[in-house]
Simulated scan of single mutants.
Amino acid sequence: MISTVQVIGIGTGDPGLVTYEAAAALREVDVFLVADKGDAKADLVEARRALCEHFIGDSHPYRFIEVPDPKRGPDAERDSTAYGAGVRDWHAARVAAYAAIIDQLPEGSTVGFLVWGDPAFYDSTLRIVDALRETSGPFEVRVHPGISAPQLLAARHAIPLNRIGTSIHVTTGRRLVQEYSPDLGDVVVMLDGHLACRDLVDQHPDLTIYWGAYLGGPAEVLRSGRLAEVIDELVALRAELREQHGWVMDTYLLRP
Rank of each mutant, 00 (worst) to 15 (best):
R223N: 13
F113C: 04
V34A: 05
C197F: 06
E46N: 12
V177F: 01
D43K: 15
A96Q: 08
G11C: 04
P15N: 08
Q244D: 15
F139L: 00
H91S: 04
D250W: 02
A85L: 15
A93I: 11
P70C: 08
D206G: 07
L153D: 00
Q203N: 15
V111Q: 09
A99D: 12
Q178N: 12
I147L: 12
N162E: 12
V115R: 03
L132K: 01
Y83R: 14
H54G: 09
E140M: 09
L153K: 03
G146Y: 00
A96S: 05
G57H: 01
A219L: 15
S181P: 13
D75P: 15
D69S: 15
T251Y: 02
A131R: 12
D206Y: 04
D130E: 15
L222H: 04
A85F: 05
G185C: 09
L132R: 02
Y252R: 11
V5E: 01
A24M: 08
R198H: 07
A25F: 01
L195N: 08
A149H: 02
A35Y: 11
H91F: 07
V67H: 00
G246I: 02
I56G: 07
P61G: 04
E28G: 05
H54K: 12
V95T: 14
P218Q: 14
A47F: 11
Q178I: 09
G38H: 08
R198V: 10
S59Y: 01
A22Q: 03
R49M: 06
E240I: 05
R94W: 13
H169Y: 12
I209K: 02
Q6I: 12
W116F: 11
S136E: 08
P160N: 06
S59D: 11
S124V: 06
P15Y: 03
G216L: 05
Q104R: 15
C197T: 10
G193S: 08
I2Y: 00
S59V: 11
S167H: 10
I10V: 11
E53F: 02
L152Q: 00
C52V: 10
Q178S: 14
R78E: 11
A93C: 09
R223S: 14
R142A: 09
G86Y: 06
A213Q: 03
T12N: 13
H204E: 09
D192W: 08
V18S: 00
F139K: 01
V188T: 03
G73N: 07
G137I: 03
T12W: 10
D39H: 13
D118N: 07
S148R: 00
G225F: 02
Y83D: 12
I102D: 03
R88H: 13
S148C: 02
M1L: 10
R255D: 09
R27D: 10
Y98A: 01
I8P: 05
L17Y: 03
L51P: 06
R48N: 01
I101N: 04
K71Q: 14
L215T: 04
A120R: 14
G38A: 09
I101Y: 07
Y122L: 02
L253N: 05
I2L: 05
F64S: 01
W211G: 11
W116E: 10
A35S: 13
Q151P: 07
A24Q: 13
L195E: 04
V18L: 01
L254K: 08
V18P: 04
R255T: 12
